[in-house]
Design a protein around this nucleic acid. Structure first.
Lengths: 314, 314
DNA sequence: CTGAAAGCGCTTACAG
DNA sequence: CTGAAAGCGCTTACAG
């Protein structure tokens, strides 16, 4: 019957059926930024999954703290969606209460909450694995470039913090001391990564390798290194995070973690919850993808593989 | 009154007011892919503009011809949105009729339609300017790498085709013959650009420069060139399109065209139309941004600047 | 100018 | 099993 009607170009008025049933058959997706590869990818995967189940998707970009406040401070979603996927934004207690009071089912991606379905990568483990790779190559001064998590930025969130923890863990396990100057934070962008790397290079004793918490920042780091006349990986090793599609072009060693899969999982978790299922928390593995941006430090290599002489600037 | 009510956490039921007024206060945005920089950027800008005016935004990703058919073949938007922004998809006559019959106002981005508001770049002019830059440097065999526009891909659209026209125009104006082998098309991605460049390199008489219709394809082209042992720009010049944020990292000369501005314009055009204004067509300028991927061809430079000897492989 | 009533187009519980 | 009625929560045209 419904199918036959649809063939004839008829659709039930969504407004009327929403009013009658109280269900909107739409899901909201909330992200801190749209114009980034990671978010396009996760939203795309979640959207496809949702649409296959007959849901429409409403999009909310919370680019500033003000927007975030307004969004959670008002019943914006009430009557507009049945559930919401929050990506890369760690909602506070108040914010979760706000969503609940609006009758929203919730699923988190790259964040966690008590009794709430979530998908995330084992960022501590991934960070540790990344740094171990550098350590195993023989690096002794390994820096960390992280995503700044200050007031004014929504982008920090849990995963970047966990990657830092993984970094420190790996150092401790290797018996290395942690140094403040080796931990640099900036905004999650090419420019931010460039700025952070610049700061590392002027340090009294510069590191020989860096684990960077996002590929985009790593790209900026590579740029600064190149402009400083340093060769990667001969003079400096860089390891990123995300396996951005341009990693191959730039030869960046990175941690891969199935970004689209996480978007799809988040959608499924939300659908489950809306159908009365118990909220679950999914962990996604990350794995090291070795390309051309990591190698043993110069000192070691000199002994082993007889490299040509280095330029005088070095 | 409404503000006071909002403070108290009260909102009018959207479903009820939609039913009563017939207006949904939401706009749909339709794109062929989400996980690309260009689309994130335009959607983000449009979304912000729309939200400032009190509109919600529904997102539709039409990734396959099947999805496109289903979307336009059913009254999907009827009663769900008041208007729609179609990005980088050239709607056919039937498709436009479908939208109109669903009571949708329409604005196009990167496409055009009779009596329909639209924003686009002067792609013919931009393509011509790009190729002229290469020609002015002294290149005589300039290739074009374009976005494939075949069945099975929605991504072709008008702009890529217009860039090809601009390319041909510049050649004609310079008195150069057009050659089929120098025009290569592939999918709009790093991989597609790489494949197209590989084909150019095996041509009987390989070109010395290429104008590539998108930066992402250009990145793939750079990768292939590097792997083939060719130096850019010494052995080969590459010129892209979009001014992707990674152009600076890769030193890619490209055509810049304010992507976010186009998204914002499209939203404004739609809002105007929904308020009874006449649909307008906006043209956005593109401008050449010279970086390190373009230079005179080897032959010329040899005479003028006494380059060191080239490797034997060349 | 204020306030009660009709109506938007569905769904669902209920009467027949 | 079928069909008429009530009700979802607004807006708006109309009566007072």
């Amino acid at each position: 019957m419904q199918e036959a009607a649809a063939e004839l170009g008829y659709t039930a008025s969504p407004a009327a059926s929403r009013l009658a049933t109280g269900r909107t058959m739409t899901v909201a997706i909330v992200v801190p930024v749209l114009a980034k590869w990671f978010f396009g990818k996760t939203i795309g995967a979640a959207t496809q999954e949702l649409r296959n189940t007959g849901y429409d998707v409403l999009l909310y970009e919370l680019a500033t703290p003000g927007q975030r406040e307004r969004f959670f401070g008002s019943p914006r979603l009430h009557g507009r969606s049945d559930g919401v996927i929050v990506i890369a934004l760690q909602p506070g207690k108040k914010e979760l209460e706000s969503l609940a009071s609006q009758g929203q089912a919730v699923a988190l991606l790259g964040a966690e909450g008590p009794g709430i379905g979530s998908v995330s990568v084992d960022n501590v483990g991934a960070g540790r694995d990344a740094v171990r790779h550098l350590l195993n190559l023989g690096h002794e001064r390994v820096a960390f470039i992280g995503i700044r998590d200050e007031e004014g930025s929504n982008l920090g969130g849990v995963p970047p913090r966990q990657r830092l923890i993984g970094y420190r863990k790996a150092l401790v396990e290797a018996g290395l001391a942690r140094e403040g100057v080796l931990e640099q934070f900036d905004e999650n962008s090419v420019g931010g990564g460039a700025a952070a790397m610049s700061r590392l290079l002027v340090a009294a004793r510069a590191p020989t390798a860096a684990f960077v918490a996002s590929d985009e920042m790593a790209f900026g780091a590579l740029m600064v290194l190149r402009r400083a006349g340093l060769d990667v990986p001969r003079d400096f090793s860089v390891l990123g995070f995300d396996n951005h599609e341009l990693c191959e072009v730039l030869g960046l060693t990175t941690m891969d973690h199935d970004v689209a899969g996480q978007g799809q999982d988040a959608a499924r978790l939300l659908l489950d919850t809306m159908n009365g299922g118990q909220p679950r928390s999914l962990g996604r593995p990350a794995r090291l993808v070795i390309r051309e941006s990591t190698a043993p430090p110069r000192v070691l290599r000199k002994n082993s593989t007889a490299q040509p002489d280095l330029p005088a600037t070095f």
